[in-house]
């Protein structure tokens, strides 16, 4: 991310060209917390997917797949609408697996 930003900064006016950034990474705005999931509580209702304003919730054929942290701004809407408490906000530094499941060394119990 740093090198992509560097490229734009070096151009007059911070012009961004195709190829500078493969996809938007608006998750850089996230401050402090990110969503995690306890898959044993998830019922694939996909309310999180419907409500996410940043298309950060991933699903495939109606099955919850995890979060895209490049896009997630940490707004907490997913954890608010989750009817089973499967989605919990955790500190940014908490280690997660690619789906958003808190790894064993994580500092906080999931769900």
């Amino acid at each position: 991310m740093a090198s992509e930003r560097q490229t734009a900064i070096l151009r007059p006016g911070g012009v961004v060209l195709p190829g500078d950034i493969e996809r938007p990474r608006t998750g850089g705005w996230r401050t402090g917390v990110k969503p995690s999931v306890d898959l044993t509580l998830c019922v694939d209702c996909l309310l999180c997917w419907i409500h996410c304003p940043d298309t950060a919730v991933q699903q495939k054929h109606g099955v919850f797949q995890g979060f895209d942290y490049d896009l997630c701004k940490g707004c907490e809407v997913c954890s608010e609408v989750c009817p089973t408490g499967a989605i919990q906000m955790v500190a940014e530094a908490t280690p997660l697996d690619p789906r958003g499941v808190v790894l064993p060394e994580g500092g906080r119990r999931n769900g």
């Binding site: 900064i9 006016g13 961004v16």
Partner: peptide
């Protein structure tokens, strides 16, 4: 060549662009 101009620059980029 298409380009994006006048983009939002966060605190991590504005300063460098401004000094240039």
């Amino acid at each position: 060549r298409p380009s994006s101009q006048g983009l939002f620059a966060m605190p991590d980029a504005y300063y460098e662009i401004k000094v240039r």
